[in-house]
């Protein structure tokens, strides 16, 4: 991919974090390199790194500058970035049920209108997609997925909503995503899932990992309601699909 930077750029995010930037755009190849570097650092830790945060195009590396300075860490990160090979092997795949449209997906009709098609076609296309968790961010469990088909790409809403429901599945720009908590969003709401990507007092608290593969299945509102009750009690609802 032409957008992928090789070697990545090292950008200071203050005195205690480095952004290792592989691309300036949303780029599948760059994201795979981000996740590969993240995995390599987890497997072979560098003393002084306190936390890593993968995003679409960069890995944010938090560190303790008293233990290692910017230049020394930067050098090691570049070496690791060269070593880290993106692999698709070993990724988990989850099947996530979604109740599309109606009260659960307030924008489904409008999205269909804008794209000159039917709500059923939008659902069929969204369900047919093969997605990957490119990053989790903004609020706990908000999972940004790559792999949305070009037909469904559309600009975000002019007026972001201040409150969108927990479990909303939406599209925005060239991305789709699953949010866990109720909160503001400028994306188009297609449906809701009962899956809690973040739930306290459950093991694991965070269900999805960056790099996980995702497919969606459509369920009706009644099934959603049943699943929602089960999820509240701690059930994953998301189904782990063995490869």
């Amino acid at each position: 991919m032409p957008e992928t930077l090789n070697p990545p750029r090292l950008l200071p995010s203050g005195d205690s974090a480095i952004t290792v930037e592989f691309s300036r755009t949303i780029d599948e190849a760059a994201n795979r390199r981000v996740l590969a570097l993240d995995r390599l650092i987890a497997a072979e830790p560098i003393a002084g790194i306190t936390e890593t945060v993968p995003t679409y195009r960069s890995l944010l590396v938090h560190y303790d500058p008293v233990q290692i300075d910017f230049d020394a860490l930067g050098e090691q990160l570049l070496a690791r970035a060269e070593q880290a090979l993106p692999t698709a092997a070993g990724t988990r795949r989850w099947r996530i049920p979604v109740a599309y449209g109606g009260e659960h997906g307030a924008d489904l009709e409008d999205v269909a209108k804008t794209l000159n098609t039917t709500p059923d076609d939008i659902v069929a296309r969204h369900v047919a997609g093969d997605y990957r968790v490119a990053m989790i961010g903004f609020t706990p469990g908000w999972s940004y997925l790559s792999g949305l088909e070009t037909f469904l790409h559309m600009p975000r809403r002019q007026n972001p909503r201040l409150l969108t429901p927990a479990g909303t599945v939406s599209i925005g720009g060239i991305q789709t995503g699953v949010q866990c908590l109720a909160g503001p969003s400028g994306w188009h709401l297609l449906g809701r899932t009962a899956v809690r990507t973040y739930q306290l007092h459950r093991d694991p608290i965070f269900l999805l990992e960056p790099g996980d593969a995702i497919t969606f299945t459509a369920v009706d509102a009644k099934t959603f309601a049943d699943q929602d009750r089960a999820a509240e009690a701690g059930a994953f609802i998301a189904e782990l699909v063995t490869p």
């Binding site: 203050g14 945060v53 195009r57 960069s58 903004f138």
Partner: peptide, 11 residues
């Protein structure tokens, strides 16, 4: 608009 990336305290 940039593609979202990580933040720190004081960004």
């Amino acid at each position: 608009n940039i593609v979202s990336d990580g933040t720190v305290n004081g960004s």
